[in-house]
Amino acid sequence: MTRILVSEVGPRDGLQSIDRVMPLEAKKAWIAAEAAAGVREIEVGSFVPPSLLPQMADTTELVAFAKTIPGLNVVALVPNAKGAARAVEAGVDAMSIPFSMSETHSIKNVRKDHPAMLLEIEEAARIAHAGGKHFAVGLATAFGCTIEGAVPQDTVVRLAEKALEAGADEVGLSDTTGYADPAQVRRLVQAVRRVAGDRLTTLHLHNTRGLGLANAVAGLEVGITTLDASLGGLGGCPFAPGASGNIVTEDLVLMLNSMGFDTGIDLEKLLEVRKIVAEALPGEPLYGFTPDAGPMLDYAERIAG
């Protein structure tokens, strides 16, 4: 049975995209409940200035809390080398830095063009490795940009190689804007693999146009073993207009478990976590079909066999 890692990004990607700030205790309850359901990796926040994203102001406290949970890989996003230093000090297990393949988006998102961003990645990698931390680069807008439109495949391959040369332990492909389709996912994964090899394992997909799960399956078909998702489909990018909707964790877990993949996640327990988020963010839209429809009648047989 193939093991697939479902990495929960809701406490970071989901919460940075809404105006309200979820209370710290509710975030802790969310993280603890997901870990109890079998989720093995959670991106708990990001080390960005609170003035830019007040939703992430308590990331240091969340890291400290999450590190008390046995078996949980605690991840945070960092925008730059300064954020990497804060992440090391906080004690994360791993960190990732977004590197937009669209230069226009990169400038809007982190105020750096590609050459400047590669220098930042090199310094962040040095800091992470000095602290003994795993350092990943998320290749954002890899499938297209709401500002520039199409992003050439050759650009993504070239910048992926440069990110690895700058010190990334791995690279992941991010459909920041929800532009990907399954055929494109297969092509791009295979193309980047030619320079990254087994240092490409992760897809970060959005369901903006309803193709999230189809794109996930396409990734699985070409050897992807880690899929990011957000509980209730919370998420998007504040600097990419119209880019809403991460893959819904509940729907992804149902699909993977039903297909015979080993996620280690108990779906029934996962569905209960949704109540914590709903109570902490009353009125905030939560998405997903599985929470409403429930699992299939033969779901237990499917996951057993």
Rank of each mutant, 00 (worst) to 15 (best):
P11G: 00
C237A: 03
I147N: 06
V21G: 13
G223S: 01
L5T: 14
G131Y: 02
K28H: 11
A57M: 14
R302G: 04
V277S: 00
S230V: 03
E250T: 04
L213N: 05
V189M: 05
A33W: 09
K82E: 14
A37P: 10
E89K: 14
A85F: 12
V63R: 04
A300I: 13
P23H: 07
D292F: 13
G219Q: 01
T59E: 04
D292S: 14
G236F: 07
I265R: 09
R274I: 09
G172P: 05
M259P: 06
F135Q: 03
V44P: 06
L252H: 07
R186E: 04
Y299M: 00
E221G: 12
G10Q: 08
T59G: 05
G288S: 10
E41P: 08
R187T: 12
R194Y: 12
V217K: 01
V222C: 01
S102T: 10
R158T: 15
A57C: 13
F239I: 10
E170D: 13
A229Y: 07
S46C: 12
A136L: 03
L62D: 08
A124I: 05
T104V: 10
N109Y: 02
N80Q: 07
E170F: 11
S106V: 01
F99V: 11
D266A: 11
I276C: 10
R3V: 15
P11Q: 01
P115L: 13
D93C: 15
E120K: 07
L205S: 08
G210A: 13
L227K: 03
A35I: 08
D154C: 12
E8V: 02
D154R: 15
M117H: 03
V63N: 01
A33S: 13
E8A: 09
V189S: 00
N215R: 05
G264H: 00
L234N: 01
F143V: 07
E272F: 07
A150L: 14
I18C: 09
P282F: 15
S100L: 05
A280D: 00
H129A: 03
I4Y: 05
I18P: 08
E123F: 06
E301A: 14
V171W: 02
R194A: 15
P291K: 06
G14Q: 00
L118M: 11
F289W: 12
A150E: 09
Q153M: 10
E25H: 15
V253Q: 10
H134C: 15
S96K: 04
C237T: 08
V75G: 07
S244F: 01
G138M: 12
R187C: 08
A29I: 06
L227F: 12
Y179G: 08
I107W: 02
Q184F: 03
T263D: 00
A218G: 03
P291C: 03
L231R: 06
